[in-house]
Simulated scan of single mutants.
Amino acid sequence: MQNAIRTPHQTTAYQAGIFQPIPMIGRYVFFQLAPAADTVSLKASLTRMKSLVDGESVVAGIGQQLADRLGMKVPGLREFPALSGPQDVRVPSTPAALLLWLRGSDMGELVNRTRALANLLRPALDISNIVDSFRHGPLDKTHAHDLTGYEDGTENPEGEEAQAAAFAHGQGPLLDGSSFLAIQQWQHDFEQFESFSASDRDDLMGRRLSDNEELEDAPESAHVKRTAQESFEPEAFVLRRSMPWLHSSKGLDRSGLMFAAFGCSLGAFEVQMRRMAGLEDGIVDGLFRFSQPLTGSYLWCPPMHNGQLQLGQLGL
């Protein structure tokens, strides 16, 4: 499929990396506004950044903080809402000014690219956090796996339905082809997860690990039932592009899933997250029994035009 949405006057393309399969390795580089950042320095930094953001090896997402500092509005963009639910469920909000999702197969290349991008964005933007990620599971399968072994993204829409779910359309040349990203870093407690029986694990997910088949008799708390995209009104389809992550420090490993959902708006993710947290009917998603979100951010991924990131909505 061509990554283009045609209008009468131009061809607007989405950032191709959003639609492509999960890369072998990824790097999520989050930026915060520098104390002295002003409109002039921000515009200069973002203009320089465009030379290294091709939408494929580097996918860019703009946060509400950055848009606000520029005095611009992106329709549909807002900050991630912090949520509290039954059973002491906590879903944190950790706003970011900018996210660059680096995609590739050579970690050295991603490290060098990170440094080059950070240099271009100074002095207006500073790196606040980096999360390194990787593909897990059989390479001959369409979907990658979470570190629990379960397949991730099974219910993703495909083809034209995926394009419709993931990218804005009919909103004008500055917005068409853009995508809204909800991203969370979930940390798994593997000691807790491995204490469950194999059947209990399947019930938490709502699928069998052995063949990825959905369980008809799964409990209402099963992740598959909490997030069944067609069960919402209106239907809440998103394009998931999640990757496992790992951080080692002082001889200890922390790991989990960098959950990423791309949508034509933030609404589909938001209703799913509220149901997962038990805010819809008091039933908490089984994932919370062994995993917790550490972060939560909303970002707007601008479209591409003539091979360059289109930042006209931000006045550039």
Rank of each mutant, 00 (worst) to 15 (best):
E194G: 12
F180A: 09
R135N: 11
R135F: 13
D176Y: 07
I130W: 01
N112K: 09
L125W: 08
A116H: 06
G170H: 02
R115D: 14
L120A: 10
T154L: 15
R113T: 12
S197Q: 10
D189H: 13
L121G: 04
D106S: 11
S210Q: 13
D152N: 12
E191G: 13
A97L: 03
R122K: 15
A97I: 10
R115F: 12
N112C: 08
S221W: 07
R226D: 00
D106I: 13
R226I: 02
E216S: 12
A222D: 01
G137T: 00
G159R: 08
A228F: 01
K141S: 08
V224E: 04
M107S: 12
A198K: 12
W101F: 10
S231R: 07
G104D: 01
E194V: 06
D146W: 04
L117D: 03
L121Y: 07
Q192W: 04
E233Y: 00
P138Q: 03
A97Y: 03
R135E: 07
A182S: 15
L120Q: 08
A96Q: 12
G170L: 05
I130T: 14
A97W: 02
M107Y: 04
L99G: 03
A116G: 02
R208F: 02
E216L: 12
R207N: 11
I183T: 14
L147T: 12
A162Y: 06
N112W: 04
A97D: 04
E158I: 14
E155K: 09
G108V: 11
E158M: 08
E233W: 00
Q187M: 15
R113S: 08
L174D: 11
D146K: 03
D140V: 09
Q185K: 15
A118N: 09
R201M: 11
T142I: 13
Q185F: 04
A165H: 05
A218T: 07
D202L: 02
G159P: 04
L174S: 05
D140F: 06
Q229C: 00
S178P: 07
A124Y: 06
R135S: 11
L139N: 01
R208G: 02
P173I: 10
L147N: 07
T142F: 05
Q163T: 11
S221T: 11
L139Q: 09
L102E: 06
H136V: 10
F196K: 10
G177V: 10
A116E: 13
P95V: 10
E191I: 14
L99I: 14
Q184K: 08
N119A: 15
S128T: 13
E151N: 06
S197L: 09
F190M: 15
H188K: 11
E213V: 14
G104W: 01
A168M: 07
A218I: 08
E151Q: 15
P138S: 03
Y150N: 08
H169N: 09
L139C: 00
T227F: 00
R226Y: 02
L215M: 14
D132T: 08
P95Y: 06
V224L: 11
G104K: 01
L174R: 05
D203V: 00
A116T: 12
P95G: 06
L102T: 05
